[in-house]
Amino acid sequence: MEVRTIKVFTTVDNINLHTQVVDMSMTYGQQFGPTYLDGADVTKIKPHNSHEGKTFYVLPNDDTLRVEAFEYYHTTDPSFLGRYMSALNHTKKWKYPQVNGLTSIKWADNNCYLATALLTLQQIELKFNPPALQDAYYRARAGEAANFCALILAYCNKTVGELGDVRETMSYLFQHANLDSCKRVLNVVCKTCGQQQTTLKGVEAVMYMGTLSYEQFKKGVQIPCTCGKQATKYLVQQESPFVMMSAPPAQYELKHGTFTCASEYTGNYQCGHYKHITSKETLYCIDGALLTKSSEYKGPITDVFYKENSYTTTIK
């Protein structure tokens, strides 16, 4: 009895394709271990004539594949690729409408935090270190965002349907971005203890939790000093293409032309909904596939993004 075979390709990165001759009487799992086709788990399936010449994702289970996976995804987590594939199996079914010149995501599976993050990423200057993220990001900007969303979920250790947080998501993504040249110098002034300067680099240099107003941050924000008295913390120097200011959701007025974009969060910790506000020729609110415009805006804002380049204080 002759062994019926077909020729397929296996890959971990969709760049390096490895030619395989597979036995049609055995499952993919018996031949390769966990195997995925377009995100779908085909591990328990036997090869079919229609699979001839198709590319299958496999887990990096030998040295060659491990090197290829690390170079593309910059992670050695053995569960990463499987999590990416199972997320992709959902995100490829989502709709990605162009809204006001940006790629958004039609609401499904509690994905409003991903839509808000995706919209924000198209408006701030950011370059990702893992080629996987950078490639998928370019495709997302062009309207094909399924891979990018699935990668975000995998890097953030999230599953489809789980509630997510924009600030946490951005923080994970910033860790995989090139923020080497970003720098922030802060000064804390206390009447009792004097003053202390701190220099922050990388992710810490672009994120701040405690106030939404970048102007206020430049002037000074009140913080408790270690001595128990009130101290003032203010920005001395900022070198970065953008800054992200966050605070627990509270009524906040966004003035046209003073910011790049913002995240609105309605609801409580267990259950809520994100919308995205962007400042173009007027203010726009993007909620999944829905767009509304207004000249002014007041609502429960939790993150505001500002364009920056270089700032030095005039406070002496």
Rank of each mutant, 00 (worst) to 15 (best):
D135H: 12
Y306K: 13
E68L: 06
T278V: 10
H90Q: 12
G220P: 05
R83G: 03
Y311M: 05
N147D: 15
L290P: 04
E281L: 05
V189Q: 06
V42F: 14
T11S: 11
Q195F: 08
L88T: 05
T103F: 08
Y138R: 14
T266W: 03
M245P: 04
Q122S: 02
M245C: 07
V243D: 03
E215K: 02
Q195R: 11
K293T: 13
P97W: 15
E264L: 12
K280G: 13
V236K: 04
K93S: 13
D77W: 03
L102M: 15
L17D: 10
S86N: 14
C190D: 01
L173R: 01
F70R: 07
Y155V: 04
A115S: 11
L17M: 10
L121Y: 04
Q222P: 14
R167E: 00
L133N: 02
R184Q: 06
T27Q: 11
T292Y: 07
K316I: 15
K229I: 07
Y274G: 00
T282H: 11
S279L: 03
Q134A: 09
H276R: 01
N157A: 01
T43G: 10
N89A: 11
Q31D: 07
Y252G: 09
Y36R: 01
N16Q: 11
C261G: 03
V22G: 09
L133M: 03
M26W: 08
M24T: 11
G228R: 05
P249K: 00
T10I: 12
A289P: 10
K307F: 08
Y138S: 14
V67E: 14
Q216S: 08
C285N: 04
R83F: 03
M244K: 00
E281S: 05
A108Y: 05
I315H: 15
T302W: 00
C182W: 04
H276V: 03
S246A: 03
E264K: 00
I124V: 01
G267R: 15
Y57W: 12
L235N: 03
L153V: 07
R66Q: 11
V188I: 13
A262H: 05
E308V: 08
K127S: 11
M170W: 02
R141I: 10
Q134N: 09
K316N: 15
Q122V: 02
M244Q: 00
A289V: 07
C227I: 02
R184Y: 04
Y84V: 06
T312S: 11
N129H: 10
S279Q: 08
W94Y: 10
K307L: 09
K293N: 12
L114N: 07
T312I: 13
K95M: 09
C193P: 02
T10Q: 08
G202Q: 03
Y155R: 03
V3S: 12
Y84N: 00
F56V: 09
Y208V: 03
V160T: 05
P47N: 01
T198I: 15
F128H: 02
F217P: 01
P47S: 05
V304C: 00
L153S: 08
V58E: 05
A140W: 10
V8F: 02
K54Q: 12
H18L: 02
Q237A: 12
S104K: 01
S240F: 02
I6D: 07
C261P: 09
G220C: 01
V206P: 04
K218N: 02
E2C: 11
A140L: 13
S263M: 10
T232R: 09
Q238S: 02
Y84Q: 04
E308D: 01
I301Q: 00
L186V: 14
S279D: 15
G220K: 02
C285V: 14
T260V: 15
C149Q: 07
A289S: 12
S295H: 11
T232P: 02
E125L: 04
D63W: 07
G164F: 03
C225D: 05
Q31S: 12
N178M: 05
G143P: 05
T192G: 11
F56Q: 01
G39Y: 09
A108S: 09
K233L: 15
L88N: 06
Y208W: 11
M24L: 12
Y172P: 01
D77Y: 05
W107Q: 00
N110G: 04
Q122R: 00
K298G: 06
A40K: 12
A142Q: 13
V166E: 03
Q230G: 05
M85W: 13
R184H: 02
A247S: 14
Y137G: 04
N187M: 15
I152R: 00
S181I: 05
K280E: 07
I301K: 00
S25E: 14
D165K: 02
Y96V: 07
E204P: 10
M24K: 11
K106I: 08
T19P: 12
P130C: 06
E281R: 06
C285F: 10
C227N: 00
D38K: 09
G288R: 02
Q270M: 09
K183M: 10
S240M: 00
N14E: 15
C112L: 01
C193I: 02
Y84G: 04
S213D: 12
D41W: 02
Y57P: 02
S25N: 11
D63Y: 10
T302Y: 05
P78T: 10
G299W: 00
D23F: 08
P60Q: 12
E204S: 09
V42M: 10
N61K: 12
Q30T: 12
D109H: 05
L37N: 11
E125Y: 01
I6A: 12
T292H: 08
A87H: 04
T116G: 03
Q30H: 14
E168I: 08
Y311E: 10
W94L: 05
L200K: 07
H176R: 10
T91C: 11
I286Q: 02
D38G: 10
T11W: 08
N178G: 06
I15K: 15
T211A: 06
N147P: 12
S79C: 10
L114R: 05
A289Q: 11
T198S: 12
H273Q: 07
H74I: 07
K7C: 12
K93W: 07
V21D: 12
E2V: 10
T55S: 12
F217I: 12
K316A: 15
T91S: 07
H90T: 11
L59W: 15
Y311F: 12
S294V: 15
T43V: 06
K307P: 13
G161E: 00
F259C: 00
S295T: 13
F174Q: 03
S171D: 10
V304M: 07
Y306L: 04
K46R: 14
L179M: 11
G288F: 02
Y284V: 14
E296H: 14
S50M: 12
L151S: 04
Y96N: 04
V189K: 13
N89V: 13
M244S: 08
Y72H: 12
T35M: 09
D77T: 07
F9M: 14
L173H: 03
M209G: 08
A231S: 04
G143Y: 04
A140P: 05
M209L: 12
G257C: 05
K307E: 08
N89I: 12
A154K: 01
L173F: 00
A87Q: 09
K127V: 08
Y214G: 00
L17E: 07
Y96M: 05
A231K: 02
Y306V: 01
G299D: 04
G164Q: 01
N268Y: 15
P130T: 06
I152Q: 03
Q134L: 07
C149E: 01
A136L: 04
V206C: 01
K106L: 10
E264I: 15
R139E: 14
R167C: 02
S104W: 05
M244W: 06
A108G: 02
N309E: 02
G101T: 01
M24P: 12
T64W: 09
K44N: 11
V189D: 14
F32C: 15
G272R: 06
K201Y: 15
T10V: 13
R4F: 08
E71S: 08
V42H: 09
E264A: 15
L254N: 02
H90M: 12
W94P: 03
T199A: 13
A108W: 03
L81Y: 12
C271T: 08
N111G: 05
P78S: 13
V203I: 08
T91Y: 04
V188D: 04
T232N: 03
Y36E: 02
F56H: 06
H74W: 04
T5S: 10
F32L: 14
K229L: 12
P131M: 06
V236A: 09
K158R: 05
K92V: 07
T266D: 09
W107P: 03
T169V: 12
H276F: 13
Y214N: 01
V22D: 04
F305R: 00
F259N: 08
Q251D: 13
L173T: 03
Y284A: 13
D77K: 01
I124F: 02
A40G: 13
K7H: 13
E215D: 15
L200W: 00
L59F: 10
T43C: 05
N49C: 14
P130R: 04
K229N: 15
T258A: 10
L291K: 10
I152H: 03
K183S: 08
Q134M: 06
D77P: 07
G143F: 03
A140H: 08
K255I: 14
S310M: 14
H176I: 03
